[in-house]
Simulated scan of single mutants.
Amino acid sequence: MKEKITAQSIRLFEKKGFSETSIQDIVDTLGVTKGTFYYYFSSKEELLMDIHLGYIEDLLNRQEKIIHDNSKTYKEKLFEVVYMLISDIETRGLAAKIFFREMKNISEDRRAIIIPKRNEFRLNIEELIKAGMEAGEFRPNLNASILSFGILGVTNWSYHWFNPEGNCSDREVAEIFVEMILKGIQIN
Rank of each mutant, 00 (worst) to 15 (best):
E108C: 13
L53V: 08
L59N: 15
S43M: 07
K65A: 14
T21V: 01
N70P: 12
G31F: 14
T21P: 05
I23M: 11
T91M: 07
S71Y: 07
R92T: 04
Y74T: 12
N105I: 00
R62H: 09
D88R: 15
M103V: 01
T21S: 02
R101G: 05
Y74G: 14
E57F: 04
H52P: 11
I26L: 02
L78C: 01
G93P: 07
I98N: 02
T33P: 12
M49A: 10
L59Q: 15
F37D: 02
L60Q: 05
R111A: 06
N70L: 15
E76C: 01
K77R: 07
I26T: 04
T36E: 09
S87A: 10
I26S: 09
L85E: 11
R62Q: 04
I98L: 00
E80C: 06
T73M: 14
D50V: 03
L59F: 15
A96Q: 06
I66T: 06
K72E: 10
K65Y: 13
I66P: 05
K72S: 13
M84H: 12
V27F: 05
I67P: 13
T91G: 02
M84T: 12
Y40E: 02
L48P: 00
A95R: 00
R92C: 06
L48F: 02
L78P: 00
I56V: 11
I86M: 08
E46C: 03
K97D: 03
H68L: 10
I23C: 06
G93H: 08
E45N: 02
E76W: 09
D25N: 04
N70S: 14
L48Y: 07
D69T: 10
D58F: 15
S43G: 04
T91F: 04
D28I: 15
I98H: 00
N70C: 15
S71M: 09
G35T: 04
F100Q: 02
K34R: 07
H68R: 11
I106C: 00
I98Y: 00
E57W: 05
T73W: 14
R101C: 09
H52G: 03
E45W: 02
S42I: 12
M84F: 10
T91N: 05
K104E: 08
K97V: 00
S22V: 09
Y39A: 09
N105V: 00
Y38F: 12
F37P: 06
